[in-house]
Structure formats: structure tokens, C-alpha cells
Design a protein around this nucleic acid. Structure first.
Lengths: 334, 334
DNA sequence: GGTTTCGTCCGAAACGTTTTCGGTATAGGG
DNA sequence: CCCTATACCGAAAACGTTTCGGACGAAACC
């Protein structure tokens, strides 16, 4: 059926050793026989089996993309697609493959994260969308398998991470509102199982403190990154504080939900209430008014994650953390 | 390093044949020895190598997702992510892996589509985002490798396809505008290298003809699915026809671009001009006014594509075409 | 009691590569 | 003329599985 190296060898009148060497560009093969081999291989349309090669080389040149439940995070698509594009682009450049595995896969087979990866003989893994309370968090860090985690500061010898600098991102957002003269600023956070939520809260707190504004719990509402969560958060905060003039949301989706609520309630944005979101998803530019936000370099997160992983694999570097800079984008809601 | 079947055999005091049979649930192995083997395998934390297995079984249980240039289609993300989710979900259920390969990968290696797939020994392929003028279109159809193409009606013994019924989708859109009383209806199409563009134009034509309205070339503008394209299209059509009261766009992104242009020009939507888009991307619900559109069952496209492929692989069915029904969603722009 | 049958198990080949080690021939140096 | 260096090539082991064909004993049958 498929043509093997043996048939090429026979057709070219040499041993399979010589074929292998000729095709892989080794030096100690006569130029004429090399040409002959290449010509025959071309004529027979020979394609070396990567699985056979993987078996003997003990590396698959395949890295796994572990997505914690593909569609658990509503609106996570906006984030994930760009990261994925970055990962894919960089991996293609260095000749690695990417295979998708979501935790549902593991669940269905009742097998642990690490077991799955060793069965498939991945050379490395990139982990995305994992939560603080996910059971396999420690498995990722401690595994001998090189890995890089996105948006969760896990680090070890074989585990690197890349995140946006969420603390500073939050600071930018809140500082911006402060500069606009706001003093009564609420904060609607994401769910507490996300590492980024903690950091964003910290940035909010810090920015206030710099201006000697005390941080108080009841100006914060813990939602879940979703549209509905944003609506609930705004509603609740407005009830608690009639004098609130600005709200900072830990996701654009929540900010947009809030925007919708404001329209229903006749609250003028930014006149009555200023709003800043986080993520810079496409939507922010299309809703009206357009929403001010903190941009995450999503594509770059993908590429640097890949770079870190490749560094561990090919130049066996150690795991390290990489912080990417967010950027304040001022639009109409503030 | 990693524990092999040989070590399990030694530890359990049986042959590797027996270990293999025990683990794979064959019948002719004594229940006691089977238990013993399972216990030892568990204790040693044995994980069978899928690459060794692939080599001998001559199937990898891996299917390739061929994306024609990941970020060539601007706005393609909205479409692709959901399809991807559907594919992934279904594949996981039947125990296949999915590995991403974009044409850039092949280009970088100067190797044809088919060569790439045979090297990686994919069991099948799903092709997405391919254009009519892509050089490897015929390669896909004629290859012995089972494949499913999304949004391009290619069919052969080993090649199936799944698309939305774009002709009917267009009919729904235009008929809806007709029912609203419009008679002067423009059409801004996508680029001509997409198969769906031809179909959508046909649907537009048909719907008009049913109402005895002649189809005329100069009511159609060929754009490119993008925001800017939508703006250009609307502008051009408005210049050609002062009396136009409605426009149908072959993508939501174009419709939304048009919406933006209308706002700038003070054109009332739907008062002065009614608008219908295509795709039902999330954006349509967030812009103001919300845009009427034809919904594509994106997730289902992914799952049925997978079902078709699995059918060819496991039950060796032949390639077939599957049409999915679109749905008219009336919102504020019409 | 001999022959079958059945239940268990194992040896060895096969899958398609890479790589180590060594072999042969030719050329060059003394 | 002998020895060594060099260039080229091949045999065979290895990677970790699955599976075919058979072996061995015990039970069953005639």
C-alpha cells in the first residue's frame, strides 16, 4: 500500500541505511548515490512514516494543547482563538504539531492528565483555561513533562507560565478613572477560581490606595466574567452605593452587560456612570458607546507560550514566568 | 525511563503476549492472571505507547484539521471556533485525536497537502476555509484519504462535505425583505473564491424571480466578507441606486460595517434602509440596532462533519453531502 | 486408552524507521 | 610493498506494541 524505505532501498539498489542517510542529509554518502536515492524516492513518492520515526527517536514533535473544558468559559472563545492562532503559528514555524485535548477527553477515559499525555507521548504541553481549583493543577507543575500554563502563575523546573500583568492592567484602569475625577469607583470581578481575578482585585486595591482612598469590600462584587454576571454586579453595586460614579469590570463581556442594563435604566454612560472593561475583545468597538478597556496581547501570549516551551524542549532551558504588558485603551465609556 | 509492556510482563511473570491480551480485554486469558496483570500494570503505572500501537495497527486514531491559512479570513474566527468546538467534542467522544495543520505548515515544508497527511499517517482529514481557487482542491477530492470538507461541495468516494443550505438561506433573507414590502433590494456578496458566495447569490436571484422582479447585475456588489467590504459595497450600491430601500449582506460583518456607515451618513435603519446579514455571529446582538440575519448552525456543522468522517472510517461508508438548514432571525434592522 | 477438544499461555514475526558498529575498497604515505 | 587514513556503504539491533500460529496440559469423548 504505502511505500516504505525498504522499497526505496531496493529500487535504488542500496541498503535502507543509505536511503535514510541520503534523505536526512548526512555527509558520508556519495553524491551520485545520494542523487540516485532522491530521484527514486521522488519517483516512488516515498513519504517517511513519522510514527515509525517517533518510535525510534523517542520524540513525537507533537505538543498537546490542554484546554480545560472547551466551552465551560462562556465568552472564552474571544480569548482562546487568538491565543491558539499564536501558538499554532509559532509551532508551525519550528516544525511541531499541535493536538487538541480537552479535559472531557480525559474524563471520558477516566485517566489523569499526565497519563493521557504519556500515552500520546507528547513532547510538551500548553495548558489553557485551567482554574485554581482544578484537580490536576499540581499534576501539571510536578510532572516531568515540559509544560507552559497560560494565565496561572505555576512554575517549576519543567513548568513555565505566561500571563498578562493583570495587577498593572487593573491599576491602569482605575488610575484612568481617578484621573477623570472619579472617587467612588466600584469593581465587578470575575469568578474566584481564576487566578487573574485575584490579581485584578489587587490592582484595583493598589490604585485606590495610592490616592489614599480606602479599599472596602462592599465596593467589590464577585461575578463570573459573563454578560449576566456584569448586569448582576452593576445592579448590586448601584443598590449599595447611590453615589457611585464609575465601575471597573474584570471583563469586557461584563462591561457590555452593564452597558445594556444602563440603557434599560436610562443611566447615561459615561455621563452618569463611567465604565472600563478588560480584555479588549472585538465587541468593545462595536457596541455603542464603545467601551474603554485594558487590552491583553492575546496573540503574543500564544507565541511566547510556545517560545517558552520550545526553549525547554530544544535548548533545555528551565521553567520561567513571563509577564506581558497590558495597555489602556480609552474609548467612549470613560 | 518509561515503563514498557516488557517490564510489566516480567513483573507479572507472564509473556508480553499475555499482558497485551489481558489489558485489551481478550477472552482467552485466565481470570486470575488477568487480575494479576492489571494489578501489576497499575502498580508500575504502565501506559501503553500509542505510537508503538499506531505503528503496528497501521492507524493512528488521529485526524487532521486542515485550515487554509489560519488568519487569512478576517472575521473567520467567529465561524471557525464554533465549528472547531463541534468537531472536537464529537471526536473526543469516539476516541480520536485532532491535530491542527494549516497550509502555512505545508508551505514551509514545501510539501503537498496529501504528502503531509501521509507522513503524519492521519486516518482522515477535515478541511475548513478552503477556496475554489486553492491549488489543492482536487488533491483533497481525489486522495484515497477519507476527508470531509466544510463549505465547499466536494464529493467523491472518500470525500464528503457539509454546508449550510446557502441558497435557501439567501431566499429566506430576501423573501423576508420582500414581505416587508421592499422591492428595491441590493446585495453585497462575499469574495468570489468562496463557494458559498455563488450559492448566496443564487438564492438572492431566485427569491427575486419568484416575485417577478428581474435580477440585475448592477444591484449586486462583490465584496469580501469584511467590515470594510460592507462599507464599500453599501456606498457603491447607494450611488448606483438612489431608490434602494433594503440591502442583503452575505456576512454579518459586512452588515455591521454598513450599519456604521449609515450612522455616519444619518441614514435611518430600518427606516430609510433595511438590512439583513448572514451568519448570526455574536456581534449582531450587541450592535445597535441589532441586526437581522440568517443563522448558520456552526456547532452542528462541526459535529456532522465529524460524524461523516467517522462513518467513513469505522463503518466504511462512502462520501456524501450533508446540507444543514439555516434559520431566519429577525431583529431590529429589518 | 487413545483421540479430541478446550482453556491458557508463549515465541516470534511484524510494523517502518534511526543508528551503531564495522567492513570493504581505494588512495596516499613511508 | 606494506600500513594507515579516508570515503562509502551495509547488517543488525533497537524502539514498544499486536497478533499469528502453535504448544502444553487437562478434561471430555468414543
Amino acid at each position: 500500500m504505502t511505500v516504505t524505505i525498504r522499497e526505496v532501498a531496493k529500487a535504488a539498489g542500496v541498503s535502507i541505511t543509505t536511503v535514510s542517510r541520503a534523505l536526512n542529509g548526512y555527509s558520508d554518502v556519495n553524491l551520485d548515490t545520494k542523487r540516485k536515492v532522491l530521484e527514486v524516492a521522488e519517483r516512488l513518492n516515498y513519504r517517511p512514516s513519522q510514527v515509525a520515526r517517533s518510535l525510534v527517536m523517542k520524540r513525537t514533535r507533537t505538543i498537546g494543547l490542554l484546554i480545560s473544558d472547551f466551552n465551560r468559559e462562556p465568552g472564552g472563545q474571544y480569548f482562546m482563538f487568538d491565543v491558539l492562532a499564536g501558538i499554532h503559528e509559532r509551532l508551525a514555524a519550528v516544525g511541531y504539531d499541535l493536538t487538541l485535548v480537552s479535559t472531557t477527553t480525559a474524563q471520558q477515559r477516566l485517566v489523569s492528565y499526565l497519563d493521557l499525555c504519556t500515552e500520546k507521548r507528547f513532547d510538551g504541553v500548553i495548558v489553557m483555561g485551567i482554574r485554581l481549583d482544578d484537580p490536576y493543577v499540581h499534576e501539571v507543575v510536578e510532572a516531568p513533562l515540559p509544560s507552559v500554563v497560560i494565565d496561572l502563575p505555576l512554575i517549576s523546573k519543567h513548568c513555565a507560565y505566561v500571563m498578562t500583568d493583570n495587577v498593572n492592567g487593573s491599576r491602569f484602569a482605575v488610575r484612568h478613572l481617578l484621573e477623570r475625577g472619579h472617587r467612588k469607583i466600584g469593581f465587578v470581578n470575575g469568578h474566584q477560581q481564576a487566578a487573574v481575578s485575584q490579581e485584578r482585585r489587587r490592582g484595583y486595591e493598589d490604585a485606590l490606595r495610592v490616592q489614599k482612598i480606602p479599599y472596602e469590600e462592599d465596593w467589590v462584587y464577585n461575578a463570573d466574567f459573563t454578560l449576566q454576571g456584569g448586569i448582576r454586579g452593576l445592579k448590586e453595586l448601584l443598590e449599595r452605593h447611590k453615589d457611585m460614579t464609575a465601575v471597573y469590570f474584570a471583563s469586557d463581556l461584563m462591561a457590555i452587560g452593564a452597558l445594556r442594563y444602563c440603557r434599560e435604566q436610562g443611566i447615561q454612560v459615561p455621563g452618569d456612570l463611567a465604565i472600563v472593561g478588560f480584555d479588549n475583545i472585538d465587541l468593545t468597538q462595536f457596541v455603542s458607546p464603545t467601551v474603554s478597556t485594558i487590552a491583553q496581547p492575546r496573540y503574543e501570549m500564544g507565541t511566547t507560550a510556545t517560545d517558552l516551551l520550545i526553549g525547554m524542549l530544544d535548548d533545555n532551558r528551565l521553567g520561567e514566568g513571563r509577564m506581558l504588558s497590558p495597555e489602556l485603551i480609552v474609548r467612549e465609556t470613560s
